[in-house]
Design a protein around this nucleic acid. Structure first.
Length: 424
RNA sequence: GGAGGGGUGCCCGAGUGGUUAAAGGGGACGGACUGUAAAUCCGUUGGCUUAGCCUACGUUGGUUCGAAUCCAACCCCCUCCA
């Protein structure tokens, strides 16, 4: 986005988001700026309950809610308990699986925990609230809904939306169920306006069409002016989608991605992304970020550590971040064995009897590789190490003799993934 | 309801009876080089108790010494017509 000095936002909210690189598109920057300057913005972001945890991809919008609150406005985290029953076709080639109500409820509970790390909930004016759209979507009566809301939607226009168009062009099925998603999301916006005076919906750039639909519906149903604000889709400097690795998404819930792994994820950021990520994913002052971004060559590693520390501290707390940093320092900089590496318990009897290396690395124990066959291949490629010695014989057996002085066996897959085997 | 086209491994996409666990590409992972980066080069990419065995080309049967490839039925998707 090109912003000339003359049209820099006056409100803290938009100024912060602009300088930190959160803004992709806005329906009316000047109008929203005026409202924000007056401190009367109530804004929401919706999260569908399709999985048990949010992932780094969601982090941008969560950070927007964070800054919204920090700059004196009121955030709403909307859980899509209702819309998840329908399924958003945006950015999807194929229909989502239809989740059972139980799954949706379980997912919803599991997602909730993360938000309180980033925004403060409560009863007071600026405190954040969390609501579930099942509250108003579930009781809807079909005929009434069609007459009150459906009549404002033109199928001609709905067909022109990217989410619909790509499905049609690629000749993939788009069920009527999913086709209705945008109507429900639009209705959410209007309903949140009615209930909480919400006038701004934020989200990823892929949500633009859905959000604008809500604004249009609002106008037709007589609400005050609504606004849309989207953040960019984050890809890494080399073009890959962020946060998707072979081992799965980078989850925010600690039980699905440990603080240490989360720290490592940020530590391995590409050079070209460091400054951008510091602005987006930490709350460090801009001046400090500018200093870190100026580091060149190998020194940029210091900036990456700061990024990892700050991002991990935001999500998992300062203590967990410090511990992760210390584990990483011992493991990578001293080559020493860090007690706090992820560990897996093995019964004493198993080691006494002898444990095959392939099995030790496989899913039954360390879980560093997905199968015995993969372990076998990795041995051929020199990718597995036991106590820092490359495994050369796939038939090798681990015994009590392999325990280090610390009483563990260190298994490594590649140079970065380590697991300690401990006697149970 | 009618006519035609199609369903292959993580994804895209070859393959129309015999070394086909299935070309090629992408992605991913490992190795080398580095700075726990990128780029580059090399390797790997179904599972297992791995000189072998098992499972796999929408599903279920059939033909054959032998099938992803031929036949039948069924399921699903797409296009056009009604």
């Amino acid at each position: 986005m090109n912003v000339s000095p003359s049209d820099l936002p006056r409100s803290d909210f938009l100024r912060v988001l602009t300088e930190r690189g959160f803004i992709h598109q806005c329906s009316d920057l000047a109008g929203l700026d005026a409202k924000a300057a007056a401190g009367e913005v109530v804004a929401y972001v919706g999260y569908d309950c399709t999985g048990p945890s949010l992932h780094v991809g969601h982090l941008l919008s969560i950070m927007m809610l964070h800054w919204l609150q920090q700059t004196g406005q009121k955030p709403i985290a909307l859980m899509g308990g209702g819309t998840t029953r329908v399924g958003d076709p945006s950015g999807k080639d194929e229909s989502r699986k239809i989740l059972t109500l139980d799954q949706i409820a379980a997912n919803k509970d599991s997602l909730k925990t993360v938000f309180s790390r980033f925004i403060r909930f409560g009863e007071a004016g600026r405190d954040a609230i969390m609501v579930d759209n099942a509250e108003w979507l579930a009781p809807l009566n079909y005929i009434d809904f069609l007459r009150d809301v459906g009549r404002h939607f033109s199928v001609n226009r709905m067909l022109s939306f990217d989410s619909v168009k790509t499905r049609l062009e690629r000749e993939h099925e788009l069920s009527f169920l999913e086709f209705n998603y945008m109507i429900l999301q639009a209705y959410d916006f209007v309903e949140l306006n009615k209930r909480y005076g919400c006038t701004l919906q934020m989200g990823g750039s892929d949500q633009w069409g859905n959000i604008v639909n809500g604004i249009d519906l609002g106008r037709r149903m007589g609400t005050k002016q609504l606004y849309a604000l989207t953040c960019p889709l984050i890809t890494t400097a080399s073009g890959a989608k962020m946060g998707k690795t072979a081992s799965g998404a980078v989850w925010l819930n600690a039980d699905m991605k440990s603080p240490y792994e989360y720290w490592q994820f940020w530590r391995n950021t590409e050079d070209g992304d460091v400054a951008r990520f510091l602005k987006l994913f930490t709350v460090l002052p801009m001046a400090e970020i500018a200093r870190l971004a100026a580091l060149g060559g190998a020194e940029i590693n210091e900036a990456k550590k700061v990024l990892a520390n700050e991002a991990t501290a935001l999500l998992h707390g300062r203590a967990a971040a410090d511990e992760a940093a210390e584990t990483a320092r011992k493991t990578f900089e001293e080559g020493a064995l860090a007690e706090s590496l992820p560990s897996v318990a093995v019964p004493l009897a198993v080691l006494e009897a002898g444990l095959g290396v392939l099995s030790a690395f496989g899913p039954d124990h360390a879980g560093l590789v997905g199968s015995t066959s993969e372990a076998r291949r990795q041995v051929k490629g020199g990718g597995l190490k036991v106590n820092d010695a490359t495994v050369t014989d796939e038939r090798a057996v681990l015994t009590l003799d392999d325990l280090t002085a610390e009483g563990v066996i260190k298994l490594s897959f590649g140079r970065k993934k380590h697991v300690l085997l401990r006697i149970a």
